[in-house]
Each structure stands twice: as structure tokens, then as C-alpha cells.
Design a binder for these strands. Sequence first.
DNA 1: GCGGACTGCTTACCT
DNA 2: ACAGGTAAGCAGTCCGCG
Length: 897
Amino acid sequence: MDQSPLLQNDKQYLSYEKELPENTRVMLISAVYSGENQKVKLKFYDPNLHVIYFWQDKTNHKPYCYTKLEYEKRAEEIAAVEKKFELKRIPKIDLLSDREIQAIKIIAPDPLSIGGRGGIREKLTVWEANIKYHENYLYDTRLIPGSYYKRKGDEIIEDPYKMSEIVQNALKNFLWDKILDSKEARNDKYREYVREWADLLNQPIPEIKRLALDIEVDSEEGRMPVPREHDRKVTAVGIVSNDERKVFLLEQDKNPDDGTELIPEAVMCKTEKELLEKTFKLISSYNLLVTFNGDDFDLPYLYERSQDPAIDPINHTIIPKEEIPILVKRDTVIKKGIQTEPVQLRHGVHIDLFRTFQNRSIQIYAFSHKYSEYRLNAISEALLNDSKIEFEGNIGDLPIQKLAQYCLKDTELTFRLTRFNDNLLLKLLFVIARISRLSVEDLSRVGVNQWIRGMLFYEHRKINALIPRTEELRYKGEVSTTAIIKEKKYRGGLVVEPTPGIHFNVSVVDFASLYPSIINVHNLSYETVNCPHDSCSQDPHQKIPDTAYWTCKEKKGITSLLIGSLRDLRVNYYKQLSKDKTISPEERQLYTVVSQAIKVILNASYGVMGAEIFPLYCLPVADATAAIGRNIITKTIDKCRESGVEVVYGDTDSLFLRDPSQGKVEEISKWAKTNQGVDLELDKEYRYVVFNNLKKNYLGVLKDGTVDVKGLTGKKSHTPAFIRKTFYSMLDILGKVNTEKDFDTAREKIKNIVRESAKKLESDEYPMEELSFNVMINKSPEKYGKKSSENKRITSIDGHDSINNSIKGIPQHIKAALLFSNGRQAKAGDIISYVKTKTSEGVKPVELATHKEIDTEKYLEAMESTLDQILTALDVNFKSIIGKPRQSNLDELFWSN
DNA sequence: GCGGACTGCTTACCT
DNA sequence: ACAGGTAAGCAGTCCGCG
């Protein structure tokens, strides 16, 4: 067979890959499938020498999937024609029926024979055919990304660091305590799982040297350069790493190398080819590359451009593929209508921060929602308190000094984002890799459902269980509850009606990771809810309250075991270790990160069960979890009442107790543990809490004077800054209130603040920006103004089906966005800043409006509704404070007549 | 033909 | 593309009314 030039080039490049030496401790960082050799290639990182080693699979592992006996005949027919398939009967555990079955393993020479076009997946009902081959390989070989290994001959064997004695003892103690107080822990399996997690998660995380990269491309007004077209010059490449800072600049006629003062980091390149070659060389010398949107722009652009003879104006040569550290995978994907080539680094790992920061779990749990937009500038401002360099006009028209500074700044911001909070992001990613069994490369690009998928799929393989097909999980039963919100599938958490008023000495108690605890204690898993055993379905003790479900008592479910062991480890082990002063600060920090990573996984573990995209989606599990949660909180409220403790509020897993007398919290907590099997902890103590009649809306002052606000409009990000600031100065006053009496002086101070603010508004003293409402648009602007269920068939009263596509109203922030001038287009994810005006649209983008146009009346209304949420608690209201009664239009009419 | 009650849509928040 | 529950503001429709 002829070898294509590409193949030869690739082989040639292979010789630059360093092969994994024997007996060296290395961390597995990723696995990729190499189509040329039809083998998996593993990448390992040497934490001492900071190099990446390669290892190509030497076992005889092959792609495969399964089918069941009922389809055996058909499978044999196919195999008779397509000789590449090999069939084998293999015993497998079928968790849904709790039986051992004979499965037929269909072995193929390459992954495409399974899942490609015309593959077996299209011809037969098969199991486990939607798993990427490199994932399959890792599951079967038990190799876990983020773990340490060494090579012995052709074998890769585990090579973990030894746990310190303190940490080991802490684990023993934890297990011992567990055995004393819970029956699960007496189970050998549970102890085995806890130990395995700890062995895995206590491994140190090396700091990997990394390089951030950002490129600038000459571009015209209003047209973004596209990698596929690669028709514009690469004019600058910024490089920032642990020990380098550079910006490669293209010398052009408009900016000749005439000795102009440039920043010291600048390196001039005569041609684009030279610029690209220098860039590629640097990329190759690092193991971890970080970009912002490099997946869809920087890397494919660099690659495409390197293959364009225009980069060498004299000889018209391109850069040979083997000198390029970027690998373009053959299959192109269509994303948002744009065709992009998926790119991969040949030898190292590439993290695209744009994608990683978009992950909701990362945004919320790793960065506590500090950023809300996914642009480099927005994230940098939120996390680093630094921003991009601003400029006017076209990037192509920037003088070279400015271009250099701009490009370097972007690169530096990208780099610094990975350093934020002591390299939190990277550390977290490596811990999540261990839990999810996914490489950092993979997991930084996918949602949390895939993380949990990885963890559970691995587990199935480990216990030789067949992974069910999604349809099989639908037969687990109908949902048992009705949601409060229509369009939702089942009922969720319970919210207790707040008792309006000001309550002093309120203790807040909450259940420590309630849903994971429920999954653990009540043995919830897709195979244990409505399990096949009569002994369970007939046992009233196994019935889940307020539902038609029962749960299994014969066997512990896999989700329950995994989530349960992780939860207990976090609550009873890692949280303690992270505070243990007898261990080193570095180690403590690792445990803090581990605890955070587990939290992310736990928080999502319940949600994914009710999410269609999750491959093990099982509504009864999610439904049952929430139902038990409501039952537990309701019973606990009853217990509080019996003990004479007043519950003034509660939401899902928390209760607000009004001035509980000595020992009551302990009493209730103990009751919850014995009767419900869950940990009820004292979360915080408020000096006082203010409730109106609204749920998820309150204000509390902690014993130390810290003010906690939840849900109030003044806190919301869309509220104009001047109102928000006024709101927060009112809170400052309230933070200083200690007793009932203090409210009198506080009230007067607050009235002054409000009066002052209203006066400033009416005399146009607030700058325009402070008046803007800031609202995010969540879909592309064209999609507004239509019924969401456009063209959905609606059966009208007379029984006729009609097509309903009537135009609906356009929201204010979209109206404002449509008024943008000079071709500025709003897109999904942008925050629109607009002010309310007296113009016909009623709104205007803030930068286009003047004070004259401001609709002050509307702003007074906004102030009123926002501030009254606090004022009413003080027995005052906005209208009375600003003196003159606000006149309605009718009043005005009346008076003028 | 007008105004209040109501519904639906959208966003931001809470657990 | 993890879940459901709650609030607020706006846009549009329904419905009653000599």
C-alpha cells in the first residue's frame, strides 16, 4: 500500500517523541488514538525533568462493543460478510436485571468499524458503542489520568507516592469512626472504595511549566479572520510562560524595522514564515499550552497559515508538517455553522481557557461566580482586576508598538488566569481528571455530565457490568411527582414560607451535602430504584415516601457507593485535613483543592440523573432524591416544633431557627442523624434576620456584623449601579445595628441616604454609566420576538390544529441592542447596558444616550421597588422619604386642569 | 375602547 | 446543555363593561 506524504511526515515526527524510559515515575496526562498505527498513544509527564514521554500501546487491545444473545444471529450474519469482526461470548453483569448474562463481544480492527459511517452501530442493537476508543482503552487498562506510573518492560504499572503517616492515620481514624456510627461502613466494599479514593486523591500534583499564547491577525473592519480562509497575515504572536515573555512581530512596509523604540520583549521577524517557525519552536519546548479560544482560532489559524505559500513572499514555500506542533484531526466538525478543524498539540497538552471558563461548574465552584461573561476582558477584570488594552479603530491600523503591547497584554492575562489563586484552576483540573478518569485535555472541554459519565463508566468496567442503553433506563418507571413549575419534569426542593419581620438571634442549620447523603443512605442508583427483586418491591420499609418508588436492600448501587464514599471522604476527612496545622501548607492546599473538586462532582451528581444528555439519565433517581429531601426537611421542621423551636424560614436543605435555647440545635441534629441518617450542622448565626413575605429574599446580619443579602433586587447584577450603591450603603448602616433600639438611629441615617440619592438622580449628578441596566442576552438577537415554540402545533378549542408563529414582544435589552450604531452586533453572552429614556423605544444603549433623554420617573420607580424591600422592614417607604407624593399622570392632569 | 387581571417570556437569583 | 423553585419587569391578551 502506498503511503501518503502525510503519513510519512507523521512517522518522521514520531522520532522526535521521547519514548517512556523504564522505572521512572511519571504522571499519565492523556491518551490519544493514533489512526496511523491503530493504537492508543499515552502521554506521560516526568515531574522532575519536566518532559513528556510517549508510550504506544503494546497490548493487544482492540476496539469493541457488545450485543445481547437475542441479537446474536444477526451479529453472526454481519460477521460472516464483514470478516473484520470477531465475535466472542463473554459473561457480563446486567445491573438492571441483577443477573449474569452472556454478552457477545464484537471486536473490530479500528474504532470506525464500530461507530463510523456504516459501522456496526448502524446495523445492530449494540451496547457500549458510544465510547471513544481511547476512553475504552483507559477503562480496560485501569489507567487513570493524573495518576503516577512507571514502565517495566512492556508493562505500565502503578507507582504511587507514599502517603505520609499523619494522613494515613487520619484515614484510619475516619474509617474507624464511620464503622462505629453507620452500618454502611461495616461493609467491606465501602471501606475499599474509601481507601481507593484516598490513595488516588492524596497524590501530589506537580506544577507543570506552561506557555500562554495569543496571536493577532491583520483584519478588516467588521470582519473577523477565519482559520479556513487564512487570507490575512499573522502580525503578532505573544508568548508568556513561567520564564519567558516575548512578542514576535511581523515586519511590514507600513512599519519597517527603522529602529523605532519597541518594548523590550519585541522580536522582529522578516517574514511570516520566520514568525511562525519561531512560534512553533517555542510551543514545542513546552508541555502545557494555554490559550484563550485557541481551539477555534489561534491554533487552527497558525496551522492553516503555515500551509499557505503567502507566508514566504520570496520563495513561496510552506512549513513542512513535521515541524508543526499542531495536529489537525481529519474529521471536521460544524460548530455554530462554522466549519472548524479540531486541533490537538502533538506532544503536549493544550487548554483552551475560553472553553474551560464557560463550564458552569468551574464558574460557580472554582471561581464562586466572580465572572459572569466569558470574554477575556470580563474574566480578567473579575479575577485579576486587570484589563485588556483598549484601542480605537482597526487592529490592522495599530502602530507596531501598540500592537506589540496589546498582544503581549492579552497573552499575559491568559497566563495569569492560570496562576490565579495559587494555580487553582490547573490543580482542580488534575484532581477532577482523577475522579472523572478523563484527561485534562478532554475534561477541560466538556460539561460536568461527562465528568460523571467517566467516573461511572470506569466503574462499570471495573466490576464487569454492561453499561445500559439509554432506552433501558426509561423503563424504570414513570415519574411519581408533579413539578410546581410547568415544563419541569418532577418536583424539587421544598421552600418554607418565611415569617415576615425582624428576628433576633437566628441560627441557620443545614444538612451537609443533603442530596449526596440521600443517594448514599437510601441506596439510590439507576439499578437500585425500582429494582427487580420482589423482596424489595414488597417490603414497605423500602418504599420511598410520597412516591411510588421502592429501593433495593439486596445490593448497594454503584452510584450510591461512589457518591457516598466521596461524600463521606469530603465531609469527614478532606475538610479536616485542609485545616490540620500539623501538616505542611502545600499538602493542606492539596486537600483544600481535593475537597473543592469533590464538591463539584457531588453537587452535579444529583442533577445529571435528571438531565437528558446524561448517558445514565434516570428520572426516578432524581425524583426519588428530591422526594426524600422534602420528606427529611418536613420531618425535621415537625421535630423542631415539638422541641419548641420556631422555624422562621427554610430552603431545600436549610432551616432558620429563631433564638433556639441552649442545646436545642444539638438535640435536633442528633435526632436527624439517628432518624434520618443525615448530618445537620450549624451553618451560621445571625444577630438578626429580616424577612419580607418573599421566599429566597432576605437580609441577615451575622454576629460579627457581616451583612448577608440573598435575592434582593439591590443585589442583582442588572440593577443600575447608583441604586446598587445606595442599597449597599443602607446595608452598611444595618450592619451596625445591634439591638432593637439601634434601628431608630439607623432609620434616620438610611432616610438621609435615600433622600440624597433621589436628589442626585433628579439633578443629573449621576454619570450615565451608573444609570444603566445591565442585562445579558442569552441567545442571538434574531431569535427574540418569536414564540419560543415557533411552528409548534396548537390544538385550538374547535379541534383544529393551527400553526402558531405569531410575533411576540421584544424585551427591553434587545430593543436597546438593536439600536447599536456603526455595525456593532450584539451576540449571545453579551451584557447589554441600556438606560431608560423618554424616546419612543423607551430605552437606549448607554453610550448613545444623554441626560436630557433620561426618564427620571422610571428611575424613581426602580429606586422605589428596589429600596422598599429594605425600607418596609423599617416601617418607612420610599415615597414618604422623598417628600412630595409622586404624581401619577392622572394627578398631573388633574392639577393642571 | 379602556383598564385591570392574567399569562408568557426573559433574566437573575437561591438551594 | 447538571436539577427545580422563586421573584421581578415587561409585553401582550383576555374580559367585562349599559
